[in-house]
Amino acid sequence: MRRSAVRDLLIGAVVLAALVLLPVLWPSKALIDFVIRGAALALFATSLNLLVGYGGLVSFGHGMFFGVGAYSFGLLMQRTGMPIPVAFVVTIVVTAAVALLVGAICVRLKEIYFAFLTLAFQMFLHSLIILWVPLTGGDQGLLGGIPRPPFFGIDLGDQRQLYIAACVLLVAGLLLMRHIVESPFGFTLRMIRDNAARTGFLGVEIFRIKLVAFVLAGVFAGIGGVIMSLFVSGAYPEFAYWTMSGEGIFMIMLGGITTFLGPTIGTVILLLLNDFVTRFTEHHGLMLGAIILLFALGLRRGITDFLVDHWRRTRTPAATRRGH
């Protein structure tokens, strides 16, 4: 095993332990809700960054997999009554299949056309959800709650146990994605981002690598959707709407796309920002818009990108500095 992998596992274990202990030290329903929502969205944002940050594939339609995950899990639980772990695995298979189908068509296109095609697929899926009322409940969403039969002595109907499950899924998901981006596959993906033609000359099958990345990212977004559907006990068309993808892009841009944990930090910032801004002003848009502009025009990059740049600059002697 790589030494860095051992380090990642250790960090993951420590973070998980801290998260599990957190509500014991600070029992608050708001905190538990915040972390569960955060776990769902952080998985979603980090998976989007697999495409955007590591693959240079700017997807405007990533929310569709969040929606597919939430809806397939919700429907499987409502209609088939299968145990939660089985439904979870089936959901992953379904999400992967949808991602494979959509990805096979989309990743052939470049840049802005890729972005628009993913957006179009997402909106098409959203229209299907609205249209197919008998299955999906249309614009009302999946109502009636998602049954959560206990398994292995775990009862996800209990908010505390759901909290622990969400934390485990978050840490495990992040570790897996970390492993993916640090693997030879991850480096091939970065190489394609930086120079696709040259990578092609080396004999790499670009289409296949991009497609695998698209499917992997879709699956992790789907897992985020599962957590969200468990949290709200339902699934809504908004999960598959373009605003979901927009929020994902917003989170990774806030946190930073060049560091692995940037999207997670961006998720926390956006959630805090939303809570904070709605609490203190009715002019929600004005405030949020101004903060966004501050980031985009002031920092010109995400928080972690800025910090890493700053750290590198202060550590590097002026003479060897490049860029900036």
């Binding site: 972005a115 002019h283 929600h284 848009g285 004005l286 966004i292 502009l293």
Partner: peptide, 22 residues
């Protein structure tokens, strides 16, 4: 990055919409 342009625009959409509301 195109996402940076998107971000600036998104900020302004929020500001314009809210200004109209006000």
């Amino acid at each position: 990055n195109i996402l940076m342009q998107l971000l600036v625009c998104y900020g302004f959409i929020l500001i314009f919409d809210d200004s109209v509301k006000i």
